[in-house]
Design a protein around this nucleic acid. Sequence first.
DNA 1: CTCATCTACAACCATTTGGTTGTACGTTAG
DNA 2: CTAACGTACAACCAAATGGTTGTAGATGAG
Lengths: 129, 129
Amino acid sequence: MVVDELTEEAVDRLFHALADATRRDILRRCVRGELSVSRLAEAYPMSFAAVQKHVTVLQRAGLVGKQRRGREQLVRTDPDAVARARRALDELENAWRARVERMSGLLAGEEGADGTAGPDRGTRKGQDR
Amino acid sequence: MVVDELTEEAVDRLFHALADATRRDILRRCVRGELSVSRLAEAYPMSFAAVQKHVTVLQRAGLVGKQRRGREQLVRTDPDAVARARRALDELENAWRARVERMSGLLAGEEGADGTAGPDRGTRKGQDR
DNA sequence: CTCATCTACAACCATTTGGTTGTACGTTAG
DNA sequence: CTAACGTACAACCAAATGGTTGTAGATGAG
């Protein structure tokens, strides 16, 4: 189990990688892990090197991995990638839910609960994953 | 209703806005909508103008809104903000699930798959800017 | 072996980002 | 009214982004 720490920097890289249409498209195409970087590059109106850079960004964000096959480098989207992004959103959401509740708590006179924002996340329902 | 289309550009702005620790922190703080920009600015080791710019980025991404109160401008995180980000992730995920299934479909001889990757969209009152 | 491919990486350039300061404007307090 | 506050916005700057070309190292095909 990936007790993925998800540091702030990791979240930065994650969202930054997702903030580009070309990179999102690469993610869509590489679920099956059958495309080499040069095959991929054929699909976009930019140079091979540019696509290579995009793949590097995705890789450093942990969204794809590469595997050698002969002289090609096959790119594969990490199946858990979206889960990680979703988790980052959950944590944001939890943080602000906790903030609201702490405020309400103060107003209601509750004090037993220390600032423990022990947000048991997962209370999200639509998780069809 | 002009369904809040979530264009590629909108997704770019969304994820780009989320890809910065300061901006994510602003989101966390502004759920209650009680903080003015200058109050906010006190919390960070940067100038007022810098924070102002961050707020603008968040606003253009549809993540926060501003409301005047006297001479202050109160910043409030849009409660549905995370939902929209989550939806962007869902669409990414759906797109590649569809891709996998189309592949499997070909192999299995199934024909039901129509490449429709654009399912129902939640109807968020599309006001932006 | 030789050649064509695929990849990696450096150097370079234009634009954007994230930050600064400075100035101007509207609003509230005295 | 005047002064202080909160905001908006322009001008400027360093660094990062996203793209280019060019060069060089592996690997597979003939």
